[in-house]
Structures are given as structure tokens and as C-alpha cells.
């Protein structure tokens, strides 16, 4: 019984039942398969993070984002006061996370790749692109770069999914994907 010392004092010499050995082998091999799947996806898969990241400061990051917006703003998102920015395909795109908005609204072209930069200028935020389900953590002081390629046109939401204080649930942004 498991609540008493093993009855067989040399329990480590007992042979192990075949059913147990078989299951251990299966479970071990399955672990290797799952490990291999992660590695293999880096080689053959299309959805991986580059882990490209830089140290930054809120001021430096905000300056880059504002410079981009100044150049490429094409309008305003409804009456929200948020600019819609249409950066050239293939370019560096800066999205600012701050209490409690994603700035600016981006307009991207379907099928084109963009280097999307993400950083926060205050607390931690969570970039959650819905309904596509791409979720990335956004830290202050760190600038993450993800190269992404929208494959469908339409309006996508950016929800904050890292708790960032009392206005957390007000923090939503938008990415418009347009056909070229």
C-alpha cells in the first residue's frame, strides 16, 4: 500500500510489468514526437515567431510610430480621432500600445508582408488579433518585430488581453486589410 513502506524492501529490484513498460515507451516516444513537431514547424511551418527584439524607450518608440503616421496617414477611423495609416507594403509598421488604446489604426494590403513592431509606452499589454487569433505579449522597453502577411481582407480587431488597469476593457484597436 502506498501509505506504508514498500513490503518488498528491495523494491527497486522488482521486475516491472509489461503493460507499464509499454506505456512508458509510448509516452516517451510521444514526447519526442511533440518536441520534434515544434522544431519541424520552424523548418517547414509558416507560423513562427522570429524572436527579433530590441531594447527601446517609450520616447524613442513613440517618435518612430509618429513619424510613420505623419507620412502615411490616409484618413480617420470614424469619429474616433484615431488616424488610419497605410504604410507601404514590406515596410516597418509601428503599433503603439498604451493606456488604453492601440495607436494608430493600420491599413494593410492582403498578401503583402509587413514588419510589424510592437511595444508599450507604459504598462504591459496583450496584442490579440481577432478573429484571426494571433496573440503576442507587449512589454514596455522591448520592441518586438513580427513579419506578418495578411491572407484575408476585412476589418480585424485588436483586443488587449493583458490586464492593464481599470480601463483594460476599453482598449481595442483595428487593422483593416484591403485587396490590392
Amino acid at each position: 500500500m502506498a501509505i506504508y513502506p514498500p513490503t518488498n524492501r528491495v523494491w527497486w529490484r522488482e521486475p516491472v510489468a509489461k503493460i507499464e513498460i509499454a506505456w512508458i515507451v509510448i509516452a516517451f516516444v510521444w514526447g519526442l514526437v511533440m518536441f520534434g513537431t515544434m522544431v519541424g514547424w520552424h523548418i517547414w511551418g509558416q507560423q513562427n515567431l522570429s524572436n527579433e527584439a530590441y531594447r527601446t524607450t517609450p520616447e524613442a518608440y513613440l517618435a518612430k510610430a509618429e513619424a510613420m503616421a505623419e507620412k502615411y496617414t490616409i484618413g480617420e477611423e470614424g469619429d474616433s480621432g484615431l488616424p488610419i495609416v497605410h504604410p507601404p507594403a514590406g515596410s516597418d509598421v509601428y503599433l503603439v500600445a498604451r493606456l488604453w488604446q492601440w495607436w494608430p489604426v493600420l491599413q494593410l494590403e492582403k498578401g503583402k508582408s509587413y514588419r510589424l513592431h510592437l511595444s508599450s509606452v507604459d504598462w504591459q499589454h496583450g496584442f490579440s488579433l481577432v478573429p484571426t487569433n494571433i496573440n503576442l505579449q507587449v512589454h514596455p522597453g522591448y520592441e518586438m518585430v513580427v513579419t506578418l502577411t495578411p491572407t484575408e481582407a476585412g476589418s480585424f480587431g485588436i483586443v488587449c488581453n493583458e490586464f492593464c488597469g481599470i480601463g483594460h476593457h476599453l482598449m481595442a484597436g483595428k487593422i483593416h486589410v484591403v485587396e490590392k
Partner: peptide, 21 residues
């Protein structure tokens, strides 16, 4: 799996500037 965030008071975004449905 439908994208609903954790630790979130209002997934209708009723008071937010921009909304997601």
C-alpha cells in the same frame, strides 16, 4: 479558441472608442 480575452470586464466593448464584435 474564439479569441475571448482573460481578465476582461466587458467583451461587448460598450464604452470603448473602437469595438470588436
Amino acid at each position: 479558441t474564439l479569441g475571448v480575452p482573460r481578465r476582461h470586464w466587458d467583451i461587448t466593448f460598450s464604452d470603448a472608442t473602437l469595438r470588436y464584435g
